[in-house]
Simulated assay, not measured.
Amino acid sequence: MIAILALLLLLAWVLVSQSTRPGEDFQEAPVIERSAVVSRVIDGDTIDLEGGEKVRLVGINAPELRSSNLEERELAESAKEFVENFCPPGSKIGLNVDDLEPRDRYGRTLALVYVDVDNVWLNLNAELLRRGLAEILYLPPSEFNPYKWMVDLPLSSR
């Protein structure tokens, strides 16, 4: 019985350790595939870019602005406001598009969004999680494991 438990734990460790690419453990520089300019923040997990592209922040789910629950709507407003302050319209962001699932069912680009804060690229997706403004939404296949963002990720100064 103990041997089976040990084997299962080893298997779980292998799966978690291989679920992100090297360099995505946030101990190294982030992988920024391209840059873009924000045109509008739609809500706490979706932004519009100049040129019409919509980006859905991968690995997270922010509360819905149209919720019938007042507390959820308030949290949704807080999440949207945080994103608007972190990357207001006109600001330049870095994107790392999910190579395993580049678009969601609505055609939005699924990506990590990085924001330059004092010459340090911060993962906006992770910041929303760390501040309690979003929840983890891990839908394989995805090259990103949002559970790893919660380990040793410093909060921004914003």
Rank of each mutant, 00 (worst) to 15 (best):
D48R: 07
D48A: 09
L49C: 03
L49A: 06
G51M: 08
G51H: 00
G52Q: 10
V55F: 01
V55R: 01
R56A: 03
G59Y: 04
I60E: 05
N61K: 14
N61A: 02
E64V: 06
E64K: 07
E64F: 05
L65I: 11
R66E: 15
S68M: 13
N69P: 01
N69S: 15
L70S: 05
E71R: 13
E71I: 03
E72R: 03
E72S: 12
E74F: 13
E74P: 09
L75H: 10
L75N: 04
A76W: 13
E77W: 05
E77F: 02
S78T: 06
S78A: 14
A79T: 05
A79Y: 05
E81T: 15
E81D: 15
F82M: 03
V83C: 02
V83L: 02
E84K: 15
N85M: 10
N85G: 04
F86N: 00
F86H: 01
C87I: 13
C87V: 15
P89W: 10
S91A: 06
S91V: 01
G94F: 11
L95K: 04
L95V: 08
V97T: 10
V97C: 05
V97M: 00
D99V: 10
D99K: 15
D99M: 15
L100I: 12
L100Q: 13
E101Y: 06
P102A: 02
R103F: 15
D104P: 11
R105V: 14
Y106P: 05
G107E: 12
G107R: 12
R108E: 06
T109N: 06
T109L: 08
L110N: 10
A111G: 09
A111D: 00
A111C: 11
L112D: 03
V113C: 07
V113Q: 04
Y114Q: 08
V115D: 01
D116E: 15
V117T: 03
V117F: 09
N119Q: 08
N119V: 02
V120I: 13
W121H: 14
W121C: 09
L122K: 11
L124G: 08
N125D: 07
E127N: 08
L128K: 01
L128S: 08
R130V: 04
R131I: 07
L133H: 07
L133I: 09
L133S: 09
L137Q: 14
Y138G: 05
L139A: 13
P140N: 05
S142N: 15
E143P: 07
E143V: 06
F144K: 14
F144I: 14
N145D: 15
N145K: 02
K148S: 12
K148G: 00
W149E: 06
W149M: 12
M150N: 07
